[in-house]
Amino acid sequence: MTGTDEAAHGAVDKAPAGTEEAGKASPGAGGTGSAVPLLETRGCGKTFGGVIALRDVSTRVHAGEVTCVLGDNGAGKSTLIKILSGVHPPDSGAYLVDGAPAAFAGPRDALDRGIATVYQDLAMIPLMSVWRNFFLGSEPTRGRGPLRRLDAARARRTVREELRSMGIDIRDVDQPVGTLSGGERQSVAIARAVHFGARVLILDEPTSALGVKQAGVVLRYIARARDRGLGVVFITHNPHHAYPVGDRFLLLNRGASMGEYGRADVTRQELTSLMAGGAELEQLTHELGRDEPPVTP
């Protein structure tokens, strides 16, 4: 298995090869317990000055699985993303990629190993067309020397094909991204990461700014990326979004792990109440309930 994984990240620039390899690495959903995870953190911690942003967090991301990271504001989700995407190294514990300790100098290193992060606010440039956004920073060119130029025809064609294969329904790849809905933008960003050979997708709150229907669209693409054999890290504060696509749920609260649950070990209700801090939510229900009667005698 390790050999296969290494072969896969040797070919990150070629999406289909990487996907195929990764697909082989996880023959069936849930049957990957013995495989070497794509990403793994063991007791990771991070402090900024005197603030402990994250302590003792362990989790795994397997090919063809979705690991959901759930937590409220300030739970340490952002810090965990930054460790996974190579922005910060952990201060304590270990971060393993394909079973070997990762030493990333920056996000570019992580990207070169097939770990792509889609940030909610950084996804796209609104005034630029879909195809220009899609290839931004990795534009296909032809010709050489001073005549080296964009291969716009190839770029347009590739984007159309790639979006179709992800089942994304965009009318016109020349339209500015600003004319897309929030869900479509996230979807295009996901398709872009997949096209550029991502083996692991880290999605930072992709559904949080979206309406119910739009969020559903994005969830569908998360599932599709998973089915193509990618490992997905799905960060969210909404258990209703996490539960339908997640295989594994890591709960964070105030920088610490509140446990990691397999899909079989937890129900949606349990997840919701764990998320909200269980007792706290009951307390809140009581408070809100008690306030009402005196107001309306």
């Binding site: 950084l122 440039i125 990795s138």
Partner: peptide, 15 residues
């Protein structure tokens, strides 16, 4: 176009 449209986003994809 990218650095003028959104510099942070452009940097994030390696521009």
């Amino acid at each position: 176009f990218a650095v003028g449209g959104d510099e942070r986003a452009a940097r994030a994809v390696g521009v």
